[in-house]
C-alpha cells in the first residue's frame, strides 16, 4: 500500500499518476469528491486494476455526523479495520492500493467540535495508514518527498 499526503491543491493526484506511470494496469478510483461511498470500495475495484482512494475527510465527516463525539475510538477502529482489509485484498489480488490523504493538521484548533473531531480522527487515520503502508510520500507545492 502507498500513502500520498499533502496540503490542499498541492498536486497529490499528479504524484499518484507518476507513481503508477510504469504500471500498465488501469486504475480504479474511489473518490468522495465524486460522491462515491467508501462502503463501495470492493465493488468499484475492477479486477486486475490498482485502486486509489481519495477524499477521506468527507467520509470521516459523514461518519462523525452520524454518531457522537464519544464514538471517536469506535470510528478509529472502524477505519483501521478497513485499512487492514485493503492491505489483505491488495496482497490477494497482487495489485497496488494507493491512499491519497489531505494534510490538514497545521492550523489553529478549530472552534467547532465537529471540526476538532474530524481533524483528530483524520490525523490518527493518517498515522495508521502510514504505519500500514510500504511507501509514504509527502507532497509540497507540486514536488514530492518519500518519507518511508
Amino acid at each position: 500500500m502507498q500513502l500520498v499526503t499533502g496540503g490542499a491543491f498541492s498536486g497529490k493526484r499528479r504524484i499518484v499518476k507518476e507513481l503508477f506511470k510504469e504500471d500498465p494496469r488501469e486504475l480504479s478510483w474511489l473518490s468522495s469528491y465524486n460522491d462515491d461511498s467508501l462502503d463501495n470500495w470492493l465493488h468499484v475495484w475492477q479486477p486486475g486494476e490498482g485502486l486509489v482512494l481519495e477524499g477521506w475527510e468527507n467520509w470521516l465527516r459523514e461518519d462523525i455526523r452520524l454518531g457522537e463525539a464519544s464514538q471517536m475510538d469506535t470510528l478509529r477502529r472502524k477505519y483501521y479495520k478497513l485499512l487492514t482489509d485493503l492491505v489483505r485484498e491488495e496482497e490477494f489480488r497482487g495489485v497496488r492500493v494507493c491512499l491519497i490523504m489531505l494534510e490538514m493538521g497545521k492550523g489553529i484548533v478549530p472552534a467547532e467540535a465537529e471540526d476538532r473531531a474530524l481533524r483528530d480522527l483524520h490525523g490518527w487515520l493518517q498515522q495508521d495508514a502510514a504505519r500500514l503502508s510500504e511507501e509514504v510520500y509527502y507532497v509540497w507545492h507540486g514536488l514530492s518527498r518519500r518519507l518511508k
Binding site: 496540503g7 490542499a8 491543491f9 494534510e103 497545521k106 492550523g107
Partner: peptide
C-alpha cells in the same frame, strides 16, 4: 507561506 495544510 504554506497555508494549505489547515482544515479545508
Amino acid at each position: 507561506n504554506d497555508v494549505n495544510e489547515d482544515l479545508p
